[in-house]
Design a protein around this nucleic acid. Structure first.
Lengths: 110, 110
DNA sequence: GTATAATATGCGGATATCCGAATAAATCGT
DNA sequence: ACGATTTATTCGGATATCCGCATATTATAC
């Protein structure tokens, strides 16, 4: 743990990272960025959000270094910083699907 | 999407799953369960938490089906339900470490 | 049955997150 | 310089989370 990091601090940071993923809108954003960078206005349009709200969510993802913002003129393009984030994303989605399948099975059994 | 699930609902569920992971204590719990099941009292002792607090966190993990509770007499043993959860956990931890390394690098550069 | 041990749950106040509205900041064209 | 466009930030109220305390539940032993 290079930069003098206590165990508690590390778990705290990890939790912050998870918290940044813990909102449906931010998950939608990440999914939207899978195929490459998107500008804020593109995201506004495709997700149908208020600009301010989207910008706040992007800020949260930025703070946790989950996305990178590249500026080109007046438009800012966001992209994913690390493919492992989407890998984790997909793993959890698989878990979710398996949980849903199981819930369904139990619903039928009862 | 088997059980008539709208896209919004699905992202909402995914977000709930992430939210369950978005707390340092719950991450500690998951880490503690990697090597096998643990009883609540073992967890209380090893994590140094109030029993009620731990039980609440376990409840949250249980609600999201991230852990399974097996009862043996008066003691309840918790274990991880799906190895993909810890895989996702580890991926995010790698991302975190790489972010920390980069932050360090920038700190030195400035 | 009562007492005891292990775990879970309800309550209430502190703290954090969320969203929309308004405003600020950055960049462009003229 | 100015106005227009794109993006970011601040503010405030509603809603949600967190924790400790007290209490309930479940299972054992007598």
């Amino acid at each position: 743990m290079s930069t003098q990091q206590s165990k508690e601090e590390f778990y705290q940071l990890h939790a912050h990272l998870c918290k940044a993923l813990a909102h449906p809108t931010r998950l939608l954003i990440i999914d939207e960025l899978r195929d490459g960078p998107r500008s804020v206005s593109e995201l506004v349009e495709r997700l149908g959000l208020r600009q301010s709200n989207l910008s706040q969510h992007l800020g949260i993802l930025r703070d946790q270094r989950l996305v990178i913002a590249r500026r080109d003129g007046q438009t800012v393009y966001y992209s994913l910083r690390d493919p492992r984030v989407t890998q984790a994303f997909d793993l959890l989605r698989q878990v979710l699907r398996s949980v849903l399948r199981e819930g369904e099975r139990l619903a039928i059994a009862n």
